[in-house]
Design a protein around this nucleic acid. Structure first.
Length: 197
DNA sequence: ACAGCGATTGACT
DNA sequence: GTCAATCGCTGTA
């Protein structure tokens, strides 16, 4: 079965969504069709989460995080990289899940063309790499993941028996004690920081 | 108007 | 292991 996730899936507690996205499949439909399993995520809240873009309130960049769940939030960092998030919670309450790593399942030839690397595990084992592999930039921020979407997530009921670990989030300076990062055990596409808890 | 910086990556020792 | 690249966003003025 390949059921597209609806708004109800995203409009819940951000950590729950981050945890439950592990193992599900991102789909980029169209002529450059790509499918990729989500293997690593991070949860970001709002005014109670100092590591979050939404910590200090609404701005032009993070406004989509304050909106309705089930939309893309894509931001640009370090002058080079785009990072893909899915908005969670509900209208007025910010939250998002960062997609840190995926495992390509279909359209891997397209991914290899976009990402010049020696080994396949380097294609999508990080958030900037993942967004590049999927062909996403800030131009695709704010898109619905449900209605008329050019990106969505579906369940994969055939994927079972996996286990998930958690750890502190990567690359942040505040909120390091929180275990808001989740990743598939024994998956080579998980980013290089593998400390378990 | 502008200085500082970041939810990263890739190249290099 | 270290570190530079690179630029839009943010805060301050």
């Amino acid at each position: 079965m390949h059921n597209k996730l609806g708004y109800d899936f995203y409009s819940r507690d951000t950590v729950v969504v981050a945890l439950e996205l592990i193992g599900k499949v991102i789909v980029i439909p169209g002529s450059r069709r790509i499918k990729a399993r989500i293997v690593e995520t991070e949860a970001y809240y709002g005014s109670d989460d100092p590591a979050s873009h939404a910590y200090s309130g609404i701005t032009k960049r993070n406004a989509v995080m304050f909106g309705r769940a089930g939309y893309s939030y894509i931001y640009f960092v370090y002058g080079n990289h785009n990072c893909l998030n899915f908005v969670t919670e509900y209208e007025g309450t910010p939250g998002a899940v960062l997609i840190r790593a995926v495992e390509p399942l279909a359209g891997i030839d397209i991914v290899r063309r976009r990402r010049k690397v020696k080994s396949d595990f380097q294609l999508t084992n990080g958030p900037g790499k993942t967004a590049q592999a999927l062909g996403l930039t800030i131009k695709q921020s704010g898109l619905s993941l449900v209605n008329l979407s050019s990106i969505y997530v579906e369940e994969d009921e055939s994927f079972t028996g996996f286990t998930i670990s958690s750890s502190p989030r990567i690359g942040i300076s505040k909120g390091k004690s929180l275990l808001y990062r989740f990743f598939l055990n024994d998956n080579k596409f998980v980013s290089k920081f593998r400390q378990t808890n």
